[in-house]
């Protein structure tokens, strides 16, 4: 029953994906800006422009373009980038690992710190540690990720220059990667100097991305922990001889995680979206950074490809959250 439910969820993702493709295709052709005008110089003749339009298939009707595009998509072909003149699929696959490593790193920071903060706050309920945690969370929630990024650059990169603020790897390091997953690959190959440098470069963008998610997650988890601690089963656990910390960790936490996971799942998609700005700010060579260039150059195939990639990631994240909830909550497993 469970597997069928999950399979259904995956099948339901297909119409969502089709919707995304359609909306993006139409939107990109409605908004002003001509990719050909962006790539040709002022000296281009009308014939040259006409020739280029024909080359990229932009001279056909919108519906014809859409049908051709869908056909290519179905074959797994995302088209050719207009500005970079390379295959969009290859371009994306080259950048995706960079963004994935950064996102997962930020997620781990956010979840780890968020859960710890929530537990500490709930343990010292109505005492000063909870008050401090509440106000810190309030401040963090109020400031968006890109402002954190700028603040980090200013403080840790300029005033006290201790952290790297640009790029993914120390320029002095020579490293030939096969998979673009620098962090994992270098660790597996024993190039720990590279691993260290990649990690070191990840810290500032990662923390900037993680902070909003951490704050929202901690807030939701702490309040649902506080509710769970007033439940009958928590009182029973206390009369079994459990200490307060044991009651939180063994009894309340798993129950409290159920609403927290659902709500922070939404926030998680904000984190992924946040990579676009954060990567730009830190000159991080990921998908988000490429997305901004693609938009500036009106590179329609590349923009479409990147948005579809993000859409697939969002769908997978939501699917994963459903899966985690099913694991956490036995009552969801039947029916």
């Amino acid at each position: 029953m469970t597997t069928r439910y999950l399979l259904n969820r995956l099948l339901l993702a297909l119409p969502t994906l089709f919707g995304v493709v359609t909306v993006v295709f139409i939107l990109l052709r409605v908004v002003p800006g001509d990719p050909i005008a962006m790539m040709t110089g002022p000296g281009a003749t009308p014939e040259d422009i006409q020739h280029l339009r024909a080359h990229y298939g932009l001279d056909r009707s919108l519906s014809a373009q859409f049908v051709i595009y869908l056909g290519q998509l179905a074959m797994g072909d995302l088209g050719t980038s207009i500005s970079l003149r390379q295959d969009v699929g290859e371009l994306i696959l080259g950048r995706l690992p960079v963004t994935l490593e950064l996102t997962v790193f930020a997620m781990l920071i956010a979840i780890g710190c968020g859960v710890c903060l929530a537990i500490v706050g709930s343990y010292w309920r109505s005492r000063w540690p909870e008050a401090i945690i509440d106000s810190v969370i309030g401040i963090i929630v109020a400031i968006p990720d890109f402002l954190w990024a700028l603040a980090f650059i200013l403080i840790l990169g300029v005033v006290i220059p201790v952290m790297p603020i640009f790029g993914r790897l120390d320029l002095a390091l020579e490293y030939q990667s096969y998979t673009e997953f620098y962090l994992i690959e270098s660790a597996l190959r024993g190039r720990f100097d590279v691993t260290g440098s990649v990690l070191w470069h990840m810290i500032l963008p990662g923390v900037a991305l993680a902070l909003p998610l951490m704050a929202v997650g901690a807030r939701v988890l702490k309040s649902s922990l506080n509710v769970e601690m007033t439940q009958d089963y928590a009182a029973l656990a206390h009369t079994k001889g459990f200490s307060r910390l044991q009651v939180i960790l063994k009894e309340a936490l798993r129950n409290a995680l159920i609403p927290a996971v659902t709500l922070t799942g939404v926030q998680l998609t904000f984190l992924i979206g946040g990579t676009v700005l954060i990567e730009r700010i830190f000159g991080y060579p990921g998908l988000g950074n490429m997305a901004i260039d693609a938009v500036i150059n009106r590179d329609l195939p590349l923009i479409q490809g990147i948005i579809i990639t993000f859409a697939i990631i969002f769908i997978l994240v939501n699917f994963l959250i459903d899966l985690i909830n099913t694991i956490l909550n036995p009552r969801l497993r039947d029916g």
Partner: peptide
């Protein structure tokens, strides 16, 4: 739990659902 124990009122809520 060892010397003093409780039999609670509501069996529907006194056990941990997860």
């Amino acid at each position: 739990g060892s010397e003093i124990a409780l039999i609670p009122q509501d069996p529907m809520t006194a056990l941990n659902p997860v």
